[in-house]
Design a binder for these strands. Structure first.
Lengths: 345, 345
DNA sequence: GTTAGCACTCACTCGATTGGAGTGCTAATA
DNA sequence: TATTAGCACTCCAATCGAGTGAGTGCTAAC
């Protein structure tokens, strides 16, 4: 069967109406709702076709129709082409970029949640292929050496290293020079065993100490495996009865608390080959997270400069206002992308 | 009216039974449940008294009785005296102290949640009256100076300071010495404007730079105002129908996500004058958090050495197994307290 | 002081009933 | 041939009433 323009219009009308009301929509409603000037009977025939084609379904006999996952999918795809609306409020709120990163991202999550009335998540950008920029050892006291490692992008990490016997100033200076000359500008893949062995040899009796420092370096520049996730508006799910049922809500809340569940989402979202604008929509069963099979999820990736990418996600009911959500995400994404551009100047 | 021993026994029986079942308990149940050998009629008379005294109440005529907040309170107070049971499992799980602080605390929250089936929160220890231990300035490149400040308890903070023109090695050395000799061992209250002025004078043309560094120092040793809160088991609230109702759940989940709401809890919990073992129980309306007025909250403070204190909290229904919860909290508290003792050796 | 007994209350369950929304099908119409 | 009016049918959701049972309060007897 063909999905002609009339069927498409009817499908859209069904979805739009369902998005608003959350109730199954009947033929008579559509007959009045659209400007097609068709009787409810005709609509019924068309609906019967649409059901057969799998775009809509009946919760039970003699109920109206609701969109199926496939129906939502069609709707979303056809909508993706359109342009995003501008959301001025967001712009204003995001501009105070002097805030520290995590404050900023928390705020993004919150603004997004308040703005859309859905649950949201934002991940801190993940660094990949980062390089050593600067290493500094300092003696805090007789037994403690502080190692500070700075990576590109000004990611700084400290490690306190305990030593059995004091290291004198001269040796400290030498070790500092050795570390910086050997490691600066290297990415994690470039620090191999041969290099480490060579450094240890040069450090002589302080070889094992060098090992500790290199561990700290690795810790700093390696790709973070437990990524930071900020969430907001989890309680918004109670606004949608279909999600607020006990079993559903429990699973959702759990996912929001155990952030590593959300991480699954990020992993798949990150790969944005074949997406429009890096925005991805998961409808119902398409979701990589089992407990969200009754939800829809929209994710967007943002770029914070060279290899630093994060993800923003919105989780809501399947009858999500996709148009608004995608628009809002586009705006935020643009803002975040721009933030870095500004920073470089 | 007097609360004699028999009434007390009956009240305890009512509460215990209600904790188990979550259903109002009737006179006949108590008559069989206790070893008092009293008929249901007698129990009824006593219950009538207890109700009049405000320890129990009837959800509706011809229903059994449930404990009132006042009843719970009496029960909890009388129980506080008893000794905590040991919870072996917890001990084992907490022992891996090499984990970093936040991992440890996250784990504590989780273990606690799984163990008790309630929602839990743990705050990172807050530092008060902390002192400067070590300061180090290093030149990363021509325009950037890295300031590392170490406070007692090995709290380390880094700040990147941008400078307009390069600072040469000699000056760097001098500034380092100036900073360390002037500030080491000082608490935040001791760093006053006179001292800062004096240091700025000594630093000559680098006075404003010193200002930046001092800001960083202050940032490090000041009492953290937005404290870190780890939560777990929020979805446990769905296990208790009286909390799972939509409005209730929504508010609770919100509190769990907006951690600063939980912070209110910490503020009041922190003041443990007049508590036994620093453990505090809020029942129903006693809670400092409005959205938790249908819950009970049990908090305990732990000490991580010199002025570093944190809070552990358990949030559950009013029919909470107080005995177990208090016992478990005591155990965890002891473990955490001991962790620091071990560290000092 | 304790208990047996009884009338009474009230929530809850269950089945029957009803109303209404919505469908599918058929036959008439343009 | 496509559209529509009409009608029988289905099923959900809400309502109602009777029945049930747990539990109480009160009274009178022990």
């Amino acid at each position: 069967m063909q999905l002609d323009e009339r069927k498409m219009k009817i499908l859209q009308a069904i979805i739009r109406n369902y998005l608003e009301t959350g109730e199954p929509v009947g033929s008579r409603t559509i007959s009045k709702y659209t400007d097609l000037n068709l009787s409810s009977a005709t609509i019924r025939n068309e609906m019967s076709d649409l059901e057969e084609m799998g775009y809509i379904l009946q919760p039970h006999t003699s109920a109206g129709r609701i969109p199926s996952d496939k129906g939502y999918r069609l709707y979303v795809d056809s909508m993706m082409e359109e342009n995003a609306r501008q959301v001025e409020e967001l712009k204003e709120m995001l501009v105070e970029k002097d805030e520290k990163m995590d404050h900023l991202l928390k705020q993004v999550a919150k603004v997004l949640a308040v703005n859309t009335n859905y649950a949201t998540m934002v991940t801190a950008p993940r660094v990949s292929g980062n390089k050593v920029k600067f290493i500094q050892l300092s003696r805090v006291n007789e037994e403690q050496i502080l190692a500070v490692v700075v990576a590109e992008g000004n990611i700084i990490k400290n490690t306190m290293i305990n030593v059995d016997e004091p290291i004198n100033d001269e040796v400290m200076l030498k070790l500092n020079i050795l570390l910086n000359t050997s490691l600066n500008g290297l990415a994690i893949e470039e620090i191999n065993l041969a290099l480490i062995a060579k450094m240890k040899a040069q450090a002589g009796e302080y070889g094992s100490f060098i090992g500790d420092v290199i561990d700290a370096v690795a810790e700093t520049i390696k790709e973070d495996d437990d990524l930071e996730v900020y969430t907001s508006g989890a309680n918004n799910i109670f606004k949608y009865p279909e999600l607020a049922s006990e079993q559903n809500a429990s699973g959702l809340i759990n996912a929001f608390e155990e952030k590593q569940l959300l991480a699954q989402l990020v992993d798949t979202a990150m790969d944005d080959t074949g997406t429009k604008n890096g925005i991805r929509v998961y409808i119902g069963e398409e979701s990589p997270i089992q407990s969200m099979k009754d939800c829809s999820i929209v994710t967007a990736n943002y770029e914070f400069g060279e290899g630093m990418r994060g993800t923003i996600g919105i989780i809501g009911p399947k009858r999500m206002d996709y148009e608004k959500v995608v628009g809002t995400l586009k705006t935020i994404k643009t803002q975040l992308d721009a933030l870095y551009q500004d920073d470089k100047k």
